[in-house]
Amino acid sequence: MKWGVVQFPGSCDERDALRACELAGGEAQLIWHEERDLGDVDAIVVPGGFSYGDYLRAGAIARFSPAMEAVTEFAAAGGPVLGICNGFQVLCEADLLPGALLLNESMRFTCRQVDLQVVQLNPPEGTQSFILPGETLSIPAKHGEGRYWAPESMLDSLEANGQVAFRYAPGENPNGSARDIAGVRNEAGNVLGLMPHPEHAVDPMTGSTDGLKVFEAVGEARV
């Protein structure tokens, strides 16, 4: 299992993502944003941070980088892609995932451990959708622009299609996200994005190793 972690100027969680990929049982390498060739990776992580300073809108400029063009082709070919926090914002801006992430309702940057409910999914037949364990995961969330938003009709169809992958547990929604949505996937099921940070919950030293389960699920999607 070979992982590629995309690094933009302003990324800050790429090292933790590399480590999480390795702990999930794989090799991992960084892919600089100017790189158009992803090499022979089996899965891609678009990590957290503040790509290109988050100028204009979070993720708006990163989506036009050569590496993201390559990631878009990789995703279209069914390759598993995991976007975390700023990576989730980038994937939404790139239209690889539906919806958008807006300024937190509180206007505050929040940083705390949250309980995430994994929405049990029946992946569409013939796709390489991630199979996530149906349980509650304890994972840190740290962001200022994490309020998931989509028009009501889009939210309805996401729920009907099984594209809502994670919800904040009752009372845990840190940002005012619509319908407590913390993460979504694309229709085919091979692109997954979430605001909380599974890569920061991989070592018992920091309290929870639940994040590894997300990396393991993404890794297995390609096996």
């Binding site: 204009l56 708006a60 801006e93 919806g99 958008a100 807006l102």
Partner: peptide
């Protein structure tokens, strides 16, 4: 394409 996100 860039200056605005037409969804929001």
């Amino acid at each position: 394409k860039l200056l605005a996100n037409p969804l929001i």
